[in-house]
Design a protein around this nucleic acid. Structure first.
Length: 392
DNA sequence: TGCGATT
């Protein structure tokens, strides 16, 4: 049975900010420490391959960041070659509480590759909320998330819950789930009360125990997970050289314009690939090769000069902002930077912007899909950014 | 029909 890898990833959770809302500025408590409950956010369900830099770039587009951290695995990080595998969540602390609020409003629910990110206020860090996540197995297949919450809610406040579903049969329960309580002692009580018990009408007893903390995984489990994550990245379509470039002349064909009344993000998600190329496994073409080919075609591309592939987006509305570009391009792969060009005096978008993507394949896919895409009452024109200086 | 750089 194939199951969703995402479902096994542990994520951290949050509540709303504690206390009443206040105007701007950091709040200094009586003991001298700063209260960051209105500026500090937790971000869950980040794409596995998102880097600290991409994370900072995305949230930095909202406002000034006091600090941010993509949480990574200690064990793989300890192997010193890599920074450690992303655990799929992170924290962002803004300088201004208004920016934290804005980040929640504009970035919560943003689709990036195969994930839908969650942005919410972080609960203050405290020992009592740690290790409060439970793993439940043997659940009746008919039991849904709400039923499970009902069963567990007598023991405390539930922060999140989920039931794992089989991927190929589209949503049949695996009889396995997770329940996170607000406090560890609530989780302990739930184990005492429910482990080995039969839910009403169930044939078999359920097992309730503390969930594995991802940072406590064995080296073997981590290697397995790394392998699975890597394998998923490379299962997308590969194109040999001529196929790659034949994609460019076909740019006029974006998503069906007649279908543009559908929610944009739904269309994008269906069109997107979770493909990420590896320089080691699939060496990409050198900028020299690309330049010589595109010069023949009378087009100059800005190559992957360090940062990545720069994409020009034309026909944005005057109201467009960075989050629009993240939403449009994020589903196609790693985006390192977005920029809406504004008139300095009016602060309105001048009708165009730029997006930088790390990988050629993902950038080409984004262009092929988004060029000609109808955004509101406008039809976008999307292409690689041209080089003005050396244009023929 | 328009390709930044107020970091």
């Amino acid at each position: 049975m194939v199951t969703q890898i995402i479902s096994t990833m542990e994520t951290q959770v949050s509540n709303g900010p504690s206390g009443t809302s206040l105007p701007n500025g950091p709040v200094i408590s009586t003991n001298g420490s700063t209260d960051d409950s209105k500026t500090n956010l937790i971000v869950n369900y980040l794409p596995q391959n998102m880097t600290q830099e991409e994370f900072k770039s995305l949230f930095g587009s909202i406002g000034e960041i006091e600090s941010c951290k993509l949480v990574r695995d200690k064990i793989t990080g300890g192997l010193s070659l890599s920074p450690g595998q992303s655990l799929g969540y992170g924290f962002v602390n803004y300088v201004d509480p208004n920016d934290a609020d804005k980040a929640i409003n504009t970035l919560n629910g943003l689709k990036l590759q195969t994930k839908t990110i969650k942005v919410s206020y972080a609960r203050p860090s405290s020992a009592s909320i740690r290790d409060a996540n439970l793993y439940v197995s043997g659940l009746p297949k008919t039991m849904n998330q709400k039923d499970m919450e009902q069963l567990f809610s007598q023991y405390g406040r539930i922060i999140t819950s989920r039931i794992l579903v089989d991927q190929v049969t589209a949503g049949i329960s695996r009889g396995v789930g997770f329940i996170r309580f607000d406090k560890r002692n609530e989780a302990e009580e739930a184990i005492k009360g429910l482990n080995g018990q039969k839910p009403l009408g169930a044939a078999e007893p359920i097992t309730v125990k503390f969930a594995n903390n991802p940072s406590q995984k064995t080296g073997q489990a981590l290697l397995t997970q790394l392998y699975q994550t890597a394998a998923r990245r490379y299962t997308g379509p590969l194109h040999h050289q001529t196929q790659r470039f034949s994609m460019i002349p076909s740019l006029g064909k974006g998503p069906d314009p007649n279908n543009s009344s559908k929610p944009i993000l739904d269309n994008l998600l269906n069109a997107s690939y979770g493909v990420k190329s590896s320089p080691t496994l699939f060496p990409r073409f050198s900028p020299i090769t690309i330049d010589s080919m595109t010069s023949l075609a009378g087009v100059n591309l800005t190559g992957p000069t360090g940062a990545g592939w720069c994409i020009f987006v034309y026909n944005l509305s005057p109201e467009a902002d960075e989050s629009v570009l993240w939403q449009l391009f994020g589903p196609f792969g790693a985006v390192t930077n977005v920029k809406v060009i504004r008139d300095f005096t009016t602060n309105k978008c001048k009708g165009f912007g730029f997006v930088t993507m790390t990988n050629y394949d993902e950038a080409a896919m984004a262009i092929a899909s988004l060029n000609g895409y109808r955004l509101g009452d406008r039809v976008l024109q999307v292409s690689f950014k041209t080089s003005k200086q050396h244009k023929a």
